[in-house]
Amino acid sequence: MEFTIFINLNFKRLKPLVLIFFLSLFSFAQNRTDEEIDNLVFQYPNRFSSTEELAQKIKIDFQTEYERARAIYVWVTSHVRYDVKRYLKPKKEKPIRCTTKDECERENQKRKDAIIDRAFRKNLAICSGYSYLYQRIAQQAGLVVNVEVGDARNNKFDIGRRRIAISHAWNTVYVNGNWILLDATWGAGYVDSGEQKFYSKYNSFYFNTKPTLFFNEHYPENGEWMGTPINKRDYLNRVMVPVNEMTQTFYIAEPQTGVIQRKLGEKVKFVIYDLPVFSSLSYSLKKEGEYSYPEVHKIGENCIEFEIIIDRNIGRFLHIFIDDVHLATYKIQMHR
């Protein structure tokens, strides 16, 4: 016996449902903005049972390599605090005793696992913990990621330093056919050296940072990026540009070196491009809290220049500000 079933579809009612279905698929496939990625991860629970569970949630919530890479950065930087005590008093590690390559690799992996576990379970780490934890979660989320080590410059006393110190770690991650740079340690906040205290402050600047800006503060151990050598002396002598809302917009054409050598009474010419509109430009004097306001000349639509006379009112370091926002720091070497 055969049955014929007739289904009476009301297409007028069906069309809105079909439209909603396809719109939902379309919106699901669209790339999220950085702000959308950040806000979603900020709503994640503070605790996950394992890095695998966190990685799986990120894989479900985010579809592209870029989204997943950023989501992991957001979670790590917003949940792991810098371990100031461990940094000031490093734990003395016993030398690894091993007789074969495999045995040495196993022992090294045990130490690495302990660092990752401390960062994930106790939310405490120094740079190695941040970078190892990021690598672990990223690999579990299906990304190709490396831990890089090298030198870092993060204060005025690093200007003109003579030697490279392999003292910092960060990550590179392969996203959409390109390697991008990130530093989860510096993206998590900052340490007040006077108070010896860490302050959590999420900073997206150190995710997918432009190489020209990243290598103003980082020097890889192998001395190169994507096969291009990075000049060690130029790196050590570069002007210090603090991270703020203007960092990625302006360009200092003169002087590019962070060490200014002048005789007493000589002038230094500064040329800066692409600054936002500002009301005042000033520089610090030797006496704390005192500033001078040079005459600023506008050259064309997007360039300014000004001069500073090197006199006895200038201190060892010269800090330049526009509208009270710190623009750059130079080291002054005065010759008679």
Rank of each mutant, 00 (worst) to 15 (best):
Gln135Phe: 02
Tyr130Glu: 02
Asn146Ala: 06
Asn123Cys: 09
Thr172Phe: 01
Lys112Leu: 12
Ala138Ile: 00
Val173Cys: 06
Ala165Asn: 14
Ser131Ile: 07
Gly142Ile: 03
Ile159Asp: 02
Gln140Phe: 02
Ala169Leu: 02
Arg161His: 01
Ala114Trp: 08
Val149Pro: 09
Asn176Asp: 15
Glu148Asn: 13
Gly142Ser: 03
Leu181Lys: 04
Gln109Leu: 15
Arg136Ile: 01
Leu143Glu: 07
His168Arg: 08
Asn178Glu: 15
Asn108Cys: 13
Tyr174Gln: 07
Ile164Leu: 14
Ser128Thr: 15
Ile116Phe: 03
Asn155Lys: 08
Glu148Pro: 07
Leu182Pro: 00
Ala165Gly: 09
Leu182Gln: 10
Asp158Gly: 10
Ile180Glu: 05
Ile164Arg: 05
Ala152Asn: 09
Glu148Ile: 15
Lys110Val: 11
Gly177Gln: 06
Arg111His: 12
Phe157Gln: 11
Leu124Met: 08
Val145Phe: 00
Asn155Ile: 05
Gly160Ile: 06
Lys122His: 13
His168Thr: 10
Tyr132Cys: 04
Gln139Arg: 14
Gly177Ile: 09
Asn176Glu: 15
Arg136Ser: 13
Arg163Phe: 13
Ala114Asn: 11
Leu181Trp: 00
Ala152Arg: 00
Leu124Glu: 06
Gln109His: 12
Asn108Thr: 11
Gln139Leu: 06
Ile126Pro: 01
Lys112Ile: 13
Asp151Tyr: 00
Trp179Glu: 01
Ala169Asn: 09
Val173Met: 06
Tyr134Pro: 07
Tyr132Leu: 14
Ala152Trp: 00
Gln139Ile: 07
Tyr132Thr: 01
Ser128Met: 12
Asn155Pro: 01
Tyr130Met: 04
Asn178Cys: 10
Val175Ala: 03
Ala119Gly: 07
Gly142Phe: 04
Ala141Cys: 08
Asn155Val: 04
Tyr130Ser: 05
Leu181Arg: 03
Leu181Phe: 01
Lys156Thr: 12
Asp113Val: 09
Thr172Ala: 09
Asn176Met: 10
Ile115Lys: 11
Ile115Asp: 08
Gln135Pro: 01
Arg118Ile: 09
Tyr130Gly: 01
Trp170Asp: 07
Asn146Gln: 13
Gly160Phe: 03
Arg118Glu: 13
Ser128Val: 08
Leu124Ile: 03
Ile159Ala: 04
Ile116Ser: 00
Asp183Ala: 10
Gln140Thr: 02
Asn178Asp: 15
Lys112Asp: 08
Ile164Cys: 05
Ala152Ile: 14
Leu181Ile: 01
Ser128Ala: 15
His168Pro: 11
Asn123Glu: 12
Gly160Lys: 02
Ala152Phe: 05
Asn171His: 09
Asn171Trp: 04
Asp113Phe: 09
Asp117Thr: 14
Trp179His: 05
Val147Asp: 08
Gly160Leu: 05
Lys122Arg: 15
Ile159Thr: 03
Val145Cys: 10
Arg163His: 12
Ala169Val: 04
Ala138Trp: 00
Lys110Pro: 10
Gly160Pro: 08
Lys122Asp: 15
Leu124Ala: 09
Lys112Glu: 10
Gly177Met: 05
Trp179Val: 07
Lys156Asp: 12
Gly150Tyr: 05
Asp151Met: 01
Ala152His: 06
Glu148Tyr: 11
Arg121Lys: 14
Ala138Leu: 02
Lys122Ser: 13
Leu182Met: 15
Asn176Ala: 14
Arg136Phe: 04
Thr172Trp: 02
